[in-house]
Computed example of a mutant assay.
Amino acid sequence: MKETPCDHCKPRVRVMGSLLALLVALGGCGKSGDDGKTAGQQLDAAIAKTEQAAEKAKAGTESAMANVGAAMKDATREVEASGKQIAGKAGETLNDVSITAAVSSGLARDPELSALKISVDTKNGAVTLTGSAPTEAAREKAGALAKTVKGVNSVENRLVVKAG
């Protein structure tokens, strides 16, 4: 069961109600108690104490709510920052995948280059070509083709020239 801000006040209210009932029962309108106060004065004092306790409880609740609000704002900022970081990493990975696909597609469309013999790897926009090319001109063409793809920052051409 979830505790509400007023749950801790209920026992005080019961005690104060019992105290008031006892004072009314024991005191008469004009009779004095052991401390020299009439029942009405004792009742007024009890009411004043109850009001003070209520104000103290209210102040404590307001302070606690302010702390909760600040903690929620901090948590929200942390979650937002984490989300942006994750989204940024996901975006980088997605860009690398699309760059790899575009370079591989370009290689496959070129009759001189075989996409099956050339492996394309991309990390943070840096493309690495590995495998074999039939001629030095084809090797250079593959590197040049990779450089034309949007998002490519650099190309490391590790292709080895192998005839046939």
Rank of each mutant, 00 (worst) to 15 (best):
Ala102Val: 01
Thr130Lys: 11
Ala133Lys: 02
Gln42Arg: 13
Gly69Cys: 10
Pro111Ser: 10
Asp121Gln: 14
Ala53Cys: 10
Ser105Tyr: 05
Thr38Asp: 13
Ala133Asn: 06
Gly69Thr: 10
Ala66Leu: 04
Ser119Ile: 13
Glu80Gln: 11
Thr61Val: 12
Ala70Ser: 08
Asp110Val: 05
Ala53Val: 06
Arg139Ala: 04
Leu116Ile: 11
Leu129Asn: 01
Lys123Glu: 15
Thr135Lys: 11
Val68Leu: 13
Gly69Lys: 11
Thr93Phe: 02
Ser82Pro: 13
Lys89Glu: 09
Ile99Phe: 02
Ala66Met: 05
Ala126Ser: 07
Arg139Ser: 04
Glu112Met: 10
Ala45Ser: 02
Ala45Asn: 03
Gly40His: 11
Ala75Tyr: 05
Ala45Tyr: 03
Ala53Met: 07
Thr38Asn: 10
Ala138Thr: 00
Gly40Ala: 13
Asn67Asp: 15
Thr130Ser: 12
Lys84Gly: 07
Leu129Gln: 00
Gly125Arg: 03
Glu92Val: 11
Thr135Arg: 09
Ala101Cys: 06
Ile86Leu: 05
Glu55Val: 11
Ser82Cys: 14
Ala101His: 06
Val68Glu: 10
Asn95Pro: 15
Thr38Gln: 12
Met65Lys: 05
Thr135Trp: 11
Thr76His: 09
Gly91Glu: 05
Gly88Trp: 08
Thr128Ile: 01
Ala39Lys: 05
Ala75Leu: 08
Glu55Asp: 14
Ala138Glu: 01
Ile99Val: 06
Lys123Arg: 13
Gly40Cys: 12
Ala71Lys: 03
Val79Pro: 08
Ser132Ile: 08
Glu51Phe: 04
Ala70Lys: 04
Gly69Ile: 08
Lys37Gln: 04
Ala66Gly: 07
Leu94Asp: 12
Arg77Gly: 11
Leu116Trp: 14
Gly131Thr: 12
Asp74Ile: 06
Ala54Thr: 07
Asn124Tyr: 15
Ala39Val: 07
Gly60Ser: 05
Thr38Gly: 13
Val127Gln: 00
Lys123Asn: 15
Arg109Phe: 11
Ala64Arg: 14
Glu136Gln: 13
Gly91Leu: 04
Arg77Trp: 13
Glu92Asn: 14
Arg109Ser: 07
Gln85Phe: 08
Thr128Val: 02
Glu92Arg: 08
Gly83Trp: 03
Ala81Leu: 01
Thr122Ile: 03
Ala70Asp: 06
Thr38Ser: 14
Arg139Tyr: 04
Ser104Pro: 11
Thr128Gly: 02
Val97Cys: 04
Glu55Lys: 09
Pro111Arg: 09
Thr38Glu: 11
Ala46Ser: 01
Gly60Val: 07
Thr50Gly: 09
Glu80Thr: 09
Ala90Pro: 09
